[in-house]
Amino acid sequence: MEKRNHSSVTSFILLGFTTDPKLQLLLFVVFAIAYVTTLMGNITLIVVIRRSSWLHTPMYFFIGNLSFLDLWYSSVYTPKILLNFLSEDKRISFAGCAAQFFVSGGLTLTECYLLAAMAYDRYVAISNPLLYATAMSKKLCMGLVAASYLGGFANSILITSHTFTLSFCDADIIDDFFCDLPPLVMLSCDVTDSYQTVLYFILTSNVILPSMLILHSYASILAVVLKMRLAEGQRKAFPTCAAHFTTISLYYGSILFIYTRPKSSYILGRDKVISVVYTVMPPMLNPFIYSLRNQEVKKALKRLVKRQAAS
């Protein structure tokens, strides 16, 4: 096949999940429900936190920022997925693919940092409750969120610029539901050692190191909880930390599985199903796991509803 460089490829075709019209319709309904649930859950959580003064604490500051991030995160993928289920034209322009890759990469890496900051916040809250407000000052919290976005998008610029200057000399069909790294690498015929070095640097600094910080934070939390004399304290801390850790494990686990393997081990049909675990599910589940099952948030939500009904 004649070799083409990246400039000769003007668009890509996103195969999605299936070509069966009936299954496409079913999946459209499933993803539409997931997207609406994501929007409603995260917007509700943001509004409740902003309008409830007693929730203006470092923990809910981070949770509110996670919900804001997840609103954008889900909107990078899901609208295009829904459109492709209904349309026969499944093309995405080269520029559109690069933009989706950059934004999705930036938000993914930002969330990796933000989850690490949230784990550290929980560690400080449980290990030093009396000094919590002082240790997690407003300035520090805002700095951690800003650093998360800066680190995430700076590294996304790096990997996007390297990926979209590759030579796409194979077919322009992406066997996935969005412009992801594995299928794009599969299309390229000039993946060099320097590209792999950049990729491993980004994975190490943005995924592996934050995940190690999270593991250390939750191990420290577990050690503190086990030392608690009051059973009530353990009962409150264990379910919360377990739910957080389960979500984080699924998120980081799927990302590491998808992106840490060599090109030769990519199985795109299987990998795109696993990709749903970190692209669609977390933004939908995070509001429920982190806060909407929390008694303080439930109480704040009830008060807000009563206030709205009275007015």
Results as ranks from 00 to 15, higher is better:
K22E: 13
K138V: 10
A147E: 10
V76I: 13
I92T: 05
L268C: 04
D271N: 15
L158S: 03
S137H: 12
F257M: 12
C97Y: 02
C241I: 09
A231T: 12
F12D: 01
T260E: 05
K263G: 01
S264A: 15
P287G: 11
G233T: 09
Q308T: 09
A133L: 11
Y218S: 09
N42Y: 05
Y60K: 07
D193I: 00
Q24K: 15
F68C: 06
V297S: 10
G105Y: 01
R307D: 04
D172E: 09
M59V: 08
P239L: 14
V305M: 02
L82E: 06
R122E: 01
D121E: 15
K22A: 13
S167H: 11
R91N: 11
I157V: 15
D193L: 08
L187H: 04
L130M: 10
P21I: 04
I248E: 05
T110I: 04
D271V: 11
Y77H: 08
Y120D: 05
K90A: 08
S52L: 14
C179W: 01
A300S: 09
V276E: 03
Q234R: 15
Y113S: 11
L25N: 15
G143F: 14
D89Y: 10
K22L: 14
G269M: 05
Y149W: 12
L66R: 07
F168Q: 06
K302H: 11
F61W: 12
L213T: 13
R293A: 13
N84F: 02
S194T: 11
F168M: 06
V145M: 06
K302Q: 14
Q24D: 03
A171E: 15
F28P: 01
V76E: 00
F61E: 06
S275H: 10
D176F: 13
I49C: 09
T197I: 07
S188M: 02
V280C: 11
